[in-house]
């Protein structure tokens, strides 16, 4: 095994071009587990922790360009205003120690269906900035996940940043685990209101081979809210609409039975979380207040 330590981004790209099998490592929260447990023996480890720009973020108009290695702890502390859904999701990642190291870029690189960032990115709207010595491309996050622990990166590409749309309305994230902290998602649900476009977007985690949006549920809800003029009046979402939205969110799941939970439970729980997160977000939207304290 070789340990590559590029000091600059261009060197990292060159190293990845030369060694396409090299495994990028920043926070190490996924890669080192695989190494410690002898599940993976890459020919090269490509250490990105010296590429300082990956730890920065920039305001890019209606988006935040979030460096691939910005730790979750920073997202929680500094970006909860612009990216509230992602910040909520970040707070559920692992432990304080993990949140000090793990990053959205790492979550995307691993592309586990259980990754906590994914539903929040899907709901907010995001693009992955992938780069190689051949050039840069922006991959819509919906197209980034291609299978269980597979993503759209070419062998010579690295994730440089994630472009996440700034919130224009309330966002919620909810995750079921069988422990009250330090737990991998049994399933997760994210919801973002976009009052500027009068749309609602969603993201489902750990209930299908890849993270997915519940598009049918979104379409239904967008039409129903328009029809009931809820955006104009600020009226509560009619219970029947919320119930159907939850049912459709549940139907968007393609879960499996595994050691963390049953497929039936995942479908059920996604429906409950869809209904609850919609209620919370809509209440925030109409009252301007939150209902949960983020201490």
């Amino acid at each position: 095994m070789d340990f590559l330590r590029p000091a600059r981004w261009e060197e990292a790209l060159a190293a990845k071009a030369e060694h396409p099998a090299a495994v990028p490592i920043a926070g190490g929260t996924d890669v080192m587990v695989e190494i410690n447990f002898d599940h993976r023996r890459p020919s090269h480890l490509l250490d990105l922790t010296r590429v300082t720009e990956l730890y920065t973020w920039q305001d890019a108009g209606d988006r935040v360009r979030l460096g691939a290695a910005v730790p979750y702890a920073r997202v929680i502390e500094r970006l909860a205003g612009e990216l509230p859904g992602l910040a909520l999701a970040a707070r559920t990642v692992g432990s304080p120690q993990i949140r000090n190291r793990g990053s959205v870029g790492g979550n995307l690189g691993a592309a586990s269906p259980a990754g906590d960032s994914h539903p929040a990115l899907l709901a907010a709207g995001a693009e992955v900035e992938a780069e190689s010595v051949r050039g840069t491309r922006l991959i819509p996050v919906e197209e980034f996940y291609t299978g269980v622990k597979r993503n759209a990166l070419a062998p010579d590409e690295l994730i440089r940043a994630v472009h996440v749309r700034k919130a224009t309305g309330p966002q919620q994230f909810s995750k079921v685990g069988t422990r009250n902290a330090m737990v991998i998602a049994v399933c997760a649900f994210a919801l973002a209101l976009h009052p500027d476009t009068r749309t609602v977007r969603t993201g489902i985690g750990s209930a299908a081979p890849t993270p997915v949006r519940a598009r049918t549920a979104e379409d239904f809800l967008n039409a129903a809210l328009a029809e009931a003029r809820c955006w104009d009046t600020g009226a509560p979402v009619p219970p029947a609409v919320a119930a159907e939205f939850a049912r459709l969110a549940s139907a968007a799941c393609r879960p499996i039975d595994d050691v963390r939970g049953s497929a039936a439970y995942r479908r059920h729980a996604v429906g409950v979380m869809a209904r609850r997160t919609l209620a919370w977000a809509w209440e925030q939207h109409t009252t301007g207040e939150g209902t949960a304290r983020c201490a």
């Binding site: 340990f3 330590r5 490592i25 926070g27 190490g28 929260t29 890669v31 080192m32 587990v33 190494i35 410690n36 480890l45 250490d47 922790t49 692992g94 432990s95 304080p96 120690q97 993990i98 000090n100 190291r101 330090m182």
Partner: peptide, 24 residues
């Protein structure tokens, strides 16, 4: 990274030492 018993400060920040590659 699931127990915290190896927690150290790396450049001041608490991390799991088991998940930091030595070279890092």
């Amino acid at each position: 990274g699931e127990c915290g018993s190896c927690t150290v400060r790396l450049d001041g920040v608490p991390v799991c030492a088991c998940l930091v590659a030595a070279g890092q």
